[in-house]
Amino acid sequence: MDFSWLGDPFYQDYLIEGFVNTLWLVAVSAVGGLALAVLVAITRLKAPRPLALAVQGFTTVMRGTPLLVQLFFFYYGVGRLLEGIPGIQDSLIWPLLRDPFFYGALTFILSVGAYSGEVIRGALLSVPPGEREAGRAFGLTPLQVFFRLWLPRAIQQCLPTLTGEMILLLKSVPLVSTIAMMDLLQAANIIRDETFLVYEPLMLIGGIYLAMTLVLTLVLRQVERHFPGMKPERGRGWLPRRSLHTHGEAP
């Protein structure tokens, strides 16, 4: 095992840049993707039929095609199309449209929006309708009912699934190395090409990913555990979700 290249400041810079880019991409995609997911979920449930069907088509396509293909589609397809628009290269948004980060984030936001949108849709359906009815009966507006009562309860129901989605998102990031973005895998590839060491860089970034996944899991588990209204978790299992529906006697 030869890890002497770790002392090289150039390689350190690549690795740090790749690490920071990975965190940014995950953060932007998670926030944007989950916001889109809420929109997808409520549109599929409440929007007029043509719009709901259009959104269903979107989720079907996004969930039915490989992420790598989508990434290429947006970067090489849409990106090149945009390039051809006259004057766009002089416009203020060109630096954004030229950046592979933009296409990575766009692809991941749409993907998370489609997958998590379906998850949240199911969770919204599982919230007993009486809770919303009580909100309406006390004069809350439809928006208040949605954002104060319905959505938080749905998130509560599907938090473990969303945690899984976020971990999958994190582990999808190396795909962007294929569109020339400096992520951890891209850094490892450069190190391999220059030092002719194959395994060591891969082991390093594998270890970094493992550490990131563990940290993310621990953080999200804390969120789950401290979500208001949850019964305290006994042992190590997932949440005792069923207990939320019982209106019977307290144990």
Partner: peptide
């Protein structure tokens, strides 16, 4: 104001 058969309290509050 209404009181419901199934209480309909908001479990996350």
């Amino acid at each position: 104001s209404m009181v419901f058969q199934q209480f309909n309290l908001w479990p996350h509050f």
